[in-house]
């Protein structure tokens, strides 16, 4: 029995009906946004995937960007390398609308790539990916001696820290002396 028939025969007992497919709420088409990095290559990303980035999500909701405006003006991230932005976009697409797994093994193993990825992810405020990246960075020094850790993370020795501190103090002293001399010159 269709819904129209139900309406006309009120005496008939109500039967459970299923709404015809045409009456179902139309699916909202997914909106897409565009981002580019240092290399100016534009990446098309769905709004769902971009939800991972608190920065971009905030930009979209605060600026009230429409899809057309977004297409004409991709979000520029000049401080992020193209390949790194690609990695971030891929990750956001893979984890769109899904609960994030406890571990992610697809992160770069090379130190410098991981370093750039950490900086990009921190900038874009992608909390879950930042957590994975930091865990990966932490794992780099697991089971390493202090000397090895120092080499991996380029930590200065105490002597180097002391020398840098002395140098900084010397520079600050010189700058202060220069300022006093300039002030005395002005007073004359």
């Amino acid at each position: 029995m269709s819904s129209t028939e139900q309406g006309t025969s009120s005496a008939a007992p109500a039967e459970p009906t299923t709404a015809p497919e045409s009456a179902a709420a139309p699916e909202v088409p997914e909106s897409f946004y565009y981002v580019h990095g240092k290399d100016k290559v534009v990446h098309k990303v769905s709004a769902g995937a971009l939800q991972h980035s608190a920065l971009i999500h905030g930009m979209i909701s605060n600026l009230g960007y429409t899809e057309e405006q977004a297409k004409a003006n991709p979000f520029p991230f000049e401080n992020i390398d193209g390949d790194i932005l690609q990695m971030v976009v891929d990750w956001c697409n893979q984890h769109k609308g899904k609960p994030t797994p406890p571990e992610d093994t697809n992160l770069p193993k090379q130190k410098e790539k991981l370093f750039d990825l950490v900086l990009a992810v921190n900038y874009l405020e992608i909390k879950e990916l930042l957590t994975y990246c930091c865990k990966q960075v932490a794992m780099m020094v697991k089971g390493k001696s202090p000397e090895e850790i120092r080499e991996i993370w380029m930590i200065p020795t105490d002597a180097e820290d002391e020398a840098a501190e002395k140098e900084a103090k010397k520079r600050a002293g010189k700058e202060a002396a220069g300022e006093t001399a300039a002030a005395a010159g002005d007073a004359k």
Binding site: N122, L130, T131, V137, K142, S145, E147, D158, D161
Partner: peptide, 23 residues
Amino acid sequence: VQNEIFYKMEYSDLLLLSLASKN
């Protein structure tokens, strides 16, 4: 980010890292 990295490290690793320098 540094804090998050340290947070992800186990105590034994943090202890070894602390020996790398006073700073």
